[in-house]
Write a protein that binds this DNA or RNA. Structure first.
Length: 517
RNA sequence: GGCGCUAUCGAAUAAGGGUUCAGUUCGCGGCCCUCUCAAGGCUGAAAUACGGGUUCGAAUCCCGUUAGCGCUACCA
């Protein structure tokens, strides 16, 4: 019988969720939705040293903002589930609360001879590494060296029993079998083989915080939670042989999940994977939401920068995956049926901030006008107090083509709400020449005499006046624009005048003429 | 250093041995539209890392080299 597809996203709460993490979560989510399966969220907080308060809440809030809702592990209030229920049968979903579960599995491995107690202290190991390094070598705890160390393989049985019982501090290490070719299959990368002699005896149980390491907790939980596919970052590929060997040691190979390792997100320039510093340096967010760390350092977020979650998700989905055709715009709902692990790109994807901006612009342009107006009002806040809704809406409609983000809309449109106080000097020099000065009185009186002040009437009359007098169209129109908005860019002059209305238009012209002459 | 992964225009990618002197999107340049800007239309420059094989035929399959990345913790 085909098992129900179950995938998981398993971040560790050591800081804000990176956009690469969001992509991993997204691919898992899409996979689950398409298969009609479950998407589980599990918090991997087995590193007590690196725990960061607030990180767990951040991760869940970020996923929610992106529209990625776990089926299991998180309740309606966005809290990690701690007690089992029908909907969340595998609770708790926080690994620190599952300590007792892992302990028995670690001991089971020792009893069966797949793992062993090691009594070496961190200091001893550090010394060994330093010494090896001085000889330009690397110390590895493996089949070659384990026989010279203090562990349950080398010490007499009674002493091992004493050391374990006295609880003087021990770790459990996995005993990598000698000279085995581990044959693995990755959903994205295909066939991979590694000789076990190149692997080291990884710690499964840590003495310092009496918690399992990632490797143990991860395998046990994926087994217990009936995970069928593990879709995770490429940084885990080197430990895949260990994970295969662990499934084998536990006797779980029949239900072992299939693995898919996603490539990393790379810096837009230079070398290496995308990091927080790149965002600061190049001026774009690397986190979905704003984050303030314990030192008070602020990292910007896509949300706060004015990105629509739909655009952010769309951009991320296409970074390392494509549908096989030229289509680029997808909602999450549209991604679900077409997403496919086969088409995930194997090589690292360089993040490009320009393309991200383009995606947002596309979504901004598709946004229904009433909603865009609401976005704008929320963004501009106090500055729009008391303004007529119809007027705001007309401004937004006229200006939306020019914006990548709602957040820049105020800067683009402020002149509609407050008259310019200064005029761009270069434009003044360029357009406010003798021709324009000569024409302006007649232009003004034409405008003042217009019976109806709609766009067409204004445009037609203005053009007729200018052409019949053989004035230079560019100079006159642009000097008008300059008077209206202070700079030499923006929508059509007639469009703006119609919006301002006759009184305001004349007021601005008069004010500019008096200031500039 | 060891192990692994990866390699197409500046970036993201298409082409799954022949329809390809390599297509699309972003970015960059030009032209058109035009009262400016934006948008839009048209258009230009721009890539199969290198070397060997296999094959009638290779961007595509194999090997090597090089480069990049990842891992190499009692971190995840």
């Amino acid at each position: 019988m085909e098992r129900k597809r179950r995938v998981r996203f398993a971040p560790s709460p050591t800081g804000p969720l990176h956009m690469g993490g969001v992509r991993t979560a997204l691919y898992n989510y899409l996979y689950a939705r398409q298969a009609g399966g479950d998407f589980v969220l599990r918090i991997e907080d087995t590193d007590s040293q690196r725990f960061v308060p607030g990180a767990e809440e951040y991760i869940i809030e970020a996923l929610r903002w992106c529209g990625i809702y776990p089926d299991e592990g998180v309740d309606e209030n966005g809290k990690v589930v701690e007690t089992p229920s029908e909907k969340h049968p595998h609770a708790p979903y926080r690994q620190s609360q599952r300590r007792g579960i892992y302990r028995q599995y670690a001991e089971q491995l020792v009893k069966a001879g797949y793992a062993y107690y090691a009594f070496d202290t961190p200091e001893e190991l550090a010394a060994l590494r330093a010494e090896a390094e001085s000889r330009k070598e690397t110390f590895i705890y493996n089949w070659k060296t384990r026989g010279n160390m203090r562990n349950s393989l080398t010490l007499p049985e009674d002493e091992v029993a004493r050391l374990v019982a006295e609880d003087t501090g021990w770790t459990i290490r996995f005993k990598i079998p000698e000279n085995r070719t581990v044959v693995m299959e990755d959903l994205i990368r295909g066939h991979i083989e590694v000789n076990s002699n190149t692997l080291d005896d990884k710690v499964l149980w840590k003495r310092v915080d009496e918690l399992p390491t990632y490797h143990l907790a991860n395998i046990v939980d994926d087994h217990l939670m009936e995970i069928t596919e593990v879709i995770r970052g490429e940084e885990w590929l080197p430990s895949l042989p260990l994970h295969y060997l662990l499934y084998e040691a536990f006797g779980w190979t029949d239900t072992q999940p299939r693995f898919a390792h996603l490539s990393l997100l790379l810096k837009p320039d230079g070398k290496g994977k995308l990091s927080k510093r790149d965002g600061d340096r190049l001026g774009f967010p690397v986190f979905p939401l704003k984050w303030v760390n314990a030192e008070g350092e602020v990292s910007r977020g896509y949300r706060e920068d004015g990105y629509y979650p739909e655009a952010f998700i769309n951009m991320l989905a296409l970074l390392g995956w494509n549908p096989g055709n030229d289509r680029e715009l997808f909602t999450v709902e549209e991604l679900v049926p077409v997403f496919n692990l086969d088409r995930v790109i194997k090589s690292g994807a360089r993040f490009n901030a320009d393309k991200a901006k383009w995606f947002n612009q596309e979504y901004l342009r598709m946004r229904p006008l009433p909603q865009l107006v609401e976005d704008f009002k929320a963004c501009a806040g106090e500055k729009l107090k008391g303004c007529d809704d119809g007027y705001i809406s007309a401004v937004v409609e006229l200006m939306r083509e020019r914006a990548h983000f709602v957040t820049e809309m105020w800067n683009l449109t402020s002149f509609f709400f407050e008259a310019p106080e200064s005029y761009d000097e270069a434009s003044v020099v360029k357009f406010w020449n003798e021709d324009a000065k000569a024409a302006m009185p007649q232009v003004r009186s034409l405008l003042a005499d217009l019976a109806s002040f709609d766009k067409e009437t204004i445009e037609n009359s203005l053009h007729e006046l200018i052409t019949s007098n053989q004035w230079p169209m560019g100079k006159v129109m642009n000097s008008l624009r300059l008077f209206l908005v202070g700079v030499s860019k923006g929508p059509g002059v007639a469009d703006m005048m119609a919006l301002f209305g006759k009184d305001e238009t004349l007021r601005r012209i008069d004010s500019a003429v008096s200031k500039l002459s």
